[in-house]
Amino acid sequence: MDTAPGADLAARLTQTAAAARVPASMTALDPMRPRPFRIERWQRDLSDTFTIDLAPLEGSPLTFRPGQFNMLYIHGAGEVPISISGDPERPERLIHTTRAVGQVTNAMKALRVGDVIGVRGPFGTPWPVEAADGHDVVIVAGGIGLAPLRPLIHAVLARRGRLGNVVLLYGARTPEDILYRKQVSAWRGRFDMTVHVTVDRATGRWSGPVGMVTKLIARGGFDARDTAAYVCGPEIMMRHVAQALLDRGVAAERLFLSMERNMKCAIGFCGHCQWGPDFVCKDGPVFRYDRVATRLAQSEV
């Protein structure tokens, strides 16, 4: 002990008040560092929308719950939050559907099979599938909002036996903008699910409904007072759909929607996605309507 008092002192000086609160586990993982994934499949869905399937270069696949999102890093372009669009029971196919609207998503659109991108996640709150047990289910999608709802539809169909009626209401801009067209047709062909699709603008030979997705709610097919509702689309669409569902008698505690905000970290460090007291990245993106109804009506919050 007496042989190296200096070393002993230096060692004791590391026993700071803060050190006691920083266990080794806190510094072991770096949540900002992406994992490399390879694009296994690239498919154009719409003129500006595409779907990629990813597999990790090494390590286990990334398991997720419906409604969660990943941060996708495109080398040389940047990182964006993109919701996961695949089947949660098939995590080996990590699927993201993206609309090319900015610098990063446009760079992503130019990628092809074999290219490697970075993935962090999954992040965020999931759609509470179990909230629908014993109830009817209404899923209302607007535009690209169908993408974050697709894992939920998979999950709902996986527990179909526990649910009452299942209704999917989908509003697209034009018939050419209907996402996952084949799959929507397949769902429509099922006997255990009702699917209504409407478009804002009829083009070509479209002979289906024309009008806002809110109008589909009036067509029923579910017992509003005994229904769990899941809504995703542009904020204005979600506000009006939520109101139409509430007007029909859907309980605010069984109504869920998914928000979108600017994100740089997805783990509550960057502050960009704050929405009132919530971080959309970790307290959302899926919120229960009654928790956020006031904020939803306020501008620029």
Partner: peptide, 26 residues
């Protein structure tokens, strides 16, 4: 700031922050 970046109860921590904090005698 500890509450933001190095909350033991949180799901994620900022390791760079935690190391700087741990190694600073205040």
């Amino acid at each position: 700031l500890d509450g933001v970046f190095a909350d033991p109860g949180a799901a994620h921590h900022d390791p760079a922050y935690a190391l700087r904090r741990r190694d600073a005698l205040v």
